[in-house]
Design a protein around this nucleic acid. Sequence first.
RNA 1: GUGGGCGUAGCUCAGCUGGUAGAGCGCCGCGUUGUGGUCGCGGAUGUCGCGGGUUCGAGUCCCGUCGUUCACCCCA
Length: 450
Amino acid sequence: MARIAPLSGFPELLPAQRVVEREVIASLSQTFELHGFANIETRVVEPLDRLAKGGEIDKEIYVLRRLQADDGADDTGLGMHFDLTVPFSRYVLEHAGHLEFPFRRFQVQPAWRGERPQEGRYRQFTQADVDVVGRDVLPFHHDVEVMAVMVDALDRLPVPPVSFQFNNRKLIQGFYRGLGLADVTAAIRVIDKLDKLPADEVARLLVEQAGATPEQAARCLELATIRVPDTSFVERVRALGVTDELLDEGLAELAAVVEGCSQVDAPSVTVEANLRIARGLDYYTGTVVEIFMRGYERLKSVGGGGRYDALATDGKTTYPGVGVSFGVSRSLLPLIADGVLAGSRPVPSAVLVAVVDEESRGRSTRVATALRRSGVPCEVAPTAQKFGKQIRFADRRGIPWVWFPGEDGEHTVKDIRSGEQVVADPATWTPPVEDLRPRVLTTTTEETTP
RNA sequence: GUGGGCGUAGCUCAGCUGGUAGAGCGCCGCGUUGUGGUCGCGGAUGUCGCGGGUUCGAGUCCCGUCGUUCACCCCA
């Protein structure tokens, strides 16, 4: 029985499950590096005043303090980061003198939020972020680039198909402005409720909270219901008859992002323009995106991001950025729990070297040494049980091969899946490459490895 | 943070209006004296999440607590 109570919201994985997470992180990192993004790791804590920029998230910050703090000082003024964007913006400011701009980095780290946990929401979770940051300026084409990188990265993952839903803040703001709407920010917040409230209710709220006329509210809803897999949204928006300079700019940018991401060779990723995607964070200024995973829409977005013209500023210089993050824990833990993803084995060993009797354990150890020299992960059987038991030991752990050391160099190795057993030389034999490392198994297809 | 559902063997679960804890799978042993998986026979599972209360008696009822899950909120 579990005498030690698990901590709610702080999930831990068993070895075979951890195989999945490690392979996914390795795959993401590899793709990001293929696109020339450097890896960084930021410290776990940040000064509280930097983390707390107002907003609901303040209450979710875990604060650090010493057990024997002075009575007067109840904390150290440090909190654990709740995402990777805030620490990154601080990192950029702090190390700006040593970075080359535009700076391209990726980061895969845990973050902490004191939330009520549930499926896909944890108090400690890992996310993977890719961003490009410029000094003073960051050309728009980086929006397309960084989104395309994430499209490529997620396409290579052994997860269900994902959908990138793009929108653009300039488009929304320009449209509302051209429409003559008073409170653009309030209107965006209301439109964001569209998946929870019926359309006519949203229209009512637009009138009530955003100072819209019924006519304006109707137009806003028309805009928000546009959702297409190509650039045809441009014509449909124009047909609504609103003209505005910012709107034009947003339309062009969104078209470029949708176009650019559609051109990535990524069969398991769909790309759409969805004009009701707003995203709550108010620092976004252009491109915004939310990512959804097929069959797991209940998790809401498994990733998201966008353009922020002032990621960081030191008063003299501003650093605009564009980035997107993928929720590693949010997407993987439900997939693992549902049995969609599993590790092929809980141990790295590809071979179990059997032990004939304790007197000859040295012979088995020498076989293992030879195999390791060839890069074959292996282990020696813990006890000299009957061979049937030793084979079962390997079978339980998913170790595909069992090596039987012979008396006079007469070695044999058995594939316990097929039962086939052949004479082999420890110095030269290697298993098929697909047996070398644990792999990620999916229930739908046979297997996938980065 | 607010409100609801659920917590029984390693796993999935059964257990009626309170009366001495069960099944399947898995695990262990033997059949099979050095090559597993099938089959047959046998065996062990457990502070019924934890603490308190009501009762002659609590897995069952009540309260609290922890865990889990759902909704709100927020977002990865």
